[in-house]
Design a protein around this nucleic acid. Structure first.
Length: 396
RNA sequence: GGUUGGGUGGCUGAGUGGUCAAAAGCAACGGUCUGUAAAACCGUCGGGUUCUGCCCUUCGUAGGUUCAAAUCCUACCCCAACCA
């Protein structure tokens, strides 16, 4: 079996914050560069709900997330392979990271059974049974033909007692070894080269491992130390933001990051509120995905530099201003709060699209601010300013 | 002019003597949402309050019967359909 040092990670760090652990960089995949810290919108079922590729590109989205469990059940990964892969299928030519189905171990816990071999899921569509193993989940991702693959893991619920957390971690570690071995069988020759200008040329999908361990720092450390030995291109931090407190989250995150190598990307799975992005970038995270901007948009909640607003509120009925004057997204350039409020009240699909565009764009802008703060090396100052303004309306 | 049916909380609409401040849905209002089982879910929704309770006002209007009425009786007003 290969070791960590036997493979190259196509990730270059371009700037570091001197006062925090934040760093800016570029991760290269077969489909181009991803500038980190990055936010990746979620396209679970081969669609960032309500949006298309042009919407996402206009906002500068460089990578999206899709889901192996969901795509396996519908339309089927074999079908996707036959149709030329997920990129062609959904008309998205930039990077795609696929989650393994490990989150569904958590979110669909009543429909699955964990065994040593893998996870037996009962389909939430028709009740049919499907065994997901570390190995076949790699194969499914190969059929999907995504650019960044992820190991099947066990995302334990919160709260979990230590015994339960240890059990989840044990499976995650064991399965990681099996999944990564399967990845290297599927991609036998690593073809990643660093160019003279510092960029990388990547010819095949990348593999990320997942660090679990619930809220227990010693388990996070154990998980990170195990994962850092394995031949993967990057590290997911999983099993957080599932209901634990902010402090527990930060402690567990720091415990994991502290034992991960500097020169490979770290990806916090499932995080996306502006405050959380700042806090976790500060602790050394490079990549994020989250349902937050799109789900809350569909539910009428919109992010602004001055905090979140609920577009249905009576006060917006006659408000002719855009959501944000200086936003520049398609929704803000063209529509008033009054109109968006009306659309949402009326249950019009267009509100889902316009509010999702705004929220994703908002997070893309936030990531730009974060990257610039790292490059300018004034992270703490800019973070404080940003959060002060963002939270000002709450404090009243 | 007559016959029949009907008038219930912002709307639709249950309820036909007590368990009714009145089902349910909608709207409205507030909240939740973090690797999507989510265009979902949870509250509030006559007024007041010392609030797992108590008080006041309410089911077209006005009277009446009854220990007790949205529910029964009388008159009136209004609406719908049909007949002249």
């Amino acid at each position: 079996m290969l070791k960590s040092e036997d493979i190259l990670s196509p990730f270059s760090i371009t700037a570091k914050s001197s006062e925090t652990k934040a760093r800016a960089g570029v991760l290269y995949t077969r489909r181009g560069a991803i500038h980190t810290p990055v936010f990746m919108p979620v396209a679970t079922q081969a669609s960032v709900k309500a949006l298309n590729d042009e919407d996402l590109k206009a906002m500068g989205v460089e990578c999206i997330l899709s889901n192996t469990y969901h795509l396996y059940l519908r339309p089927g990964t074999a079908t996707l392979k036959q149709l030329g892969g997920l990129h062609k299928f959904m008309k998205w030519d930039r990077s795609i990271l696929t989650d393994s189905g490990g989150f569904q171990v958590f979110s669909l816990s009543h429909l699955r059974k964990i065994t040593e071999e893998g996870v037996l899921f009962q389909s939430h569509h028709d009740g049919s049974k499907h065994l997901f193993t570390p190995e076949n989940v790699i194969r499914f991702q190969s059929e999907i033909d995504s650019d960044i693959w992820v190991c099947l893991d066990v995302c334990v619920r919160n709260p979990s007692d230590k015994k339960e957390a240890m059990g989840g971690l044990k499976s995650t570690k064991n399965w990681a070894e099996r999944a990564i071995a399967e990845y290297h069988r599927t991609v036998p020759a690593q073809d990643i080269a660093q160019n003279p200008d510092g960029t990388f040329t990547v010819k095949h999908p990348l593999q990320f491992g997942i660090v679990q361990g619930s809220v227990y720092p010693d388990l996070r450390q154990e998980a990170a130390m195990h994962m850092r030995e394995l031949p993967v291109h990057g590290y997911c931090i999983g099993g957080l933001s599932v209901g634990e407190g902010k402090e527990e989250m930060a402690t567990a995150l720091s415990a994991a990051v502290g034992f991960l190598p500097e020169n490979r990307p770290r990806y916090f799975m499932g995080l996306g509120s502006p405050e959380d992005l700042w806090e976790c970038v500060e602790r050394g995270v490079d990549m994020f995905d989250c349902v937050w901007p799109t789900r809350t948009a569909r539910n009428g909640r919109v992010m602004t530099a001055d905090g979140n607003i609920y577009i249905r509120k009576t006060e917006y009925r006659l408000d002719e201003r855009p959501i944000e004057e200086d936003c520049g997204c398609y929704a803000c350039r063209n529509y008033s709060r009054a109109y968006l409020s009306h659309l949402h009240r009326s249950g019009e699909f267009l509100s889902h699209r316009l509010l999702s565009i705004h929220n994703i764009n908002f997070l893309m802008r936030t990531m730009k601010i974060i990257r610039k703060a790292i490059e300018d090396d004034n992270f703490a100052e800019v973070k404080a300013q940003y959060l002060k303004r963002f939270n000002a309306s709450k404090e009243k």
